[in-house]
């Protein structure tokens, strides 16, 4: 994942994740009738510095080690907690989102917040650590799902054994579909990413496929078919249509030669550079055409053994980050 979506995801989660999903439950509590001396033992045994005070399930106050020290100083150690506790307690609601707790931590400079439900019953205690752990877990789930997809896709060629295993992706391309144009190439690129193809290969295939796809959209009468055949060491893109066909292939291959209508040129296409681009991206290409019958373009891109293994292992990062030239 690139940095942008991750940051966005955490921002989203802070708003999405309810406090009840991350709060620590089963916390140690005392009753208002507990004596300060009993409290001392509870704090010592459990190695905690304070506890919520609960009466009949409801949160009625909070008592801390500081209150205990003051009680010891004033010789009031047998007093009930009720007399020494703080009753104005800052709390958060269990069904609020985590962002509310984050705000209160910052506003009141406290390290923990009692969490209550809509009736004022104590649900648990929330710390900054709980929030961090909850966010990490939530992201981990997302991250894991994508990792599993990638892992499965990447091992297709190892899992399925044959003399020649290939994955065939087939797309019907509609003529003049300028708005939707490129969606087939986009899917091919994504498939290669999941399969773990190196970023440079992904880009070369995507560019060649996209130029071929746009040619079908711009130049054909009835659209055509774009097929990507992915094998462990080679990717073959085939674009076929049934007309109108190219009169002079040699001329068509010349950079700058174009038969595109003006409206296409004004949209940034049809400048006669498409086939030259495809040629540059491919290891070999073959263009066959007959006027009135149709055109077949075949592009072959070989996957070189990857020099640094990091390339193949993290293709998604490479999309944005790796310098490949």
């Amino acid at each position: 994942m690139s940095q942008v979506p991750q940051i966005t995801r955490i921002q989203e989660l802070i708003y999405e994740l309810p406090i009840e999903r991350v709060v620590t439950r089963n916390v140690i509590t005392v009753s208002p009738d507990t004596t300060m001396s009993e409290l001392k033992e509870i704090l010592r045994i459990n190695r905690i510095s304070g506890t919520p005070v609960v009466e009949g399930g409801r949160l009625v106050g909070i008592i801390s080690i500081e209150d205990l020290i003051k009680a010891l100083e004033s010789g009031d150690i047998q007093a009930p907690v009720r007399e020494r506790m703080a009753t104005r307690v800052i709390t958060v609601q269990a069904n609020e989102s985590v962002v509310e707790a984050v705000k209160k931590f910052a506003q009141y400079k406290v390290g923990r917040l009692p969490v209550v439900n809509e009736h004022g019953d104590l649900v648990g205690i929330l710390t900054g650590g709980d929030i961090t752990r909850g966010l990490l877990e939530a992201i981990g789930l997302d991250y894991h799902a994508e990792e599993i997809s990638r892992y499965r896709a990447r091992h297709i060629f190892e899992d399925i054994v044959s003399d020649q295993t290939g994955l065939i992706l087939r797309y019907h391309i509609k003529p003049r579909d300028f708005t939707g144009g490129g969606s087939a190439s986009s899917k091919i690129k994504r498939a290669l990413d999941r399969l773990g193809a190196p970023p440079l290969i992904q880009r070369r295939v995507a560019i060649a496929a996209y130029e071929a796809e746009m040619n079908l959209i711009i130049h054909t009468d009835n659209g055509g078919e774009l097929i990507a055949e992915i094998q462990p060491e080679v990717i073959r893109i085939v674009a076929t249509d049934n007309g109108p066909g190219i009169a002079d292939i040699e001329q068509a291959m010349q950079p700058g030669f174009s038969t595109a209508p003006n409206w296409i040129r004004e949209l940034g296409f049809g400048a006669g550079m498409g086939l030259a681009n495809i040629k540059k991206c491919s290891d070999s290409m073959k263009l066959e055409s007959q006027v009135g019958v149709g055109t077949r373009l075949e592009i072959v891109i070989r996957i070189q053994p990857v020099m640094s293994s990091g390339n193949a292992a993290r293709p998604s990062e490479g999309q944005q980050k790796q310098e490949t030239s």
């Binding site: 300028f178 144009g181 490129g182 190439s185 986009s186 690129k189 995507a206 949209l267 940034g268 999309q319």
Partner: peptide, 16 residues
Amino acid sequence: TGLVNPQVVRTAEMAD
């Protein structure tokens, strides 16, 4: 670029 059609984004996607 002076173009604002969806293919500009498609192109950007293909070319990273």
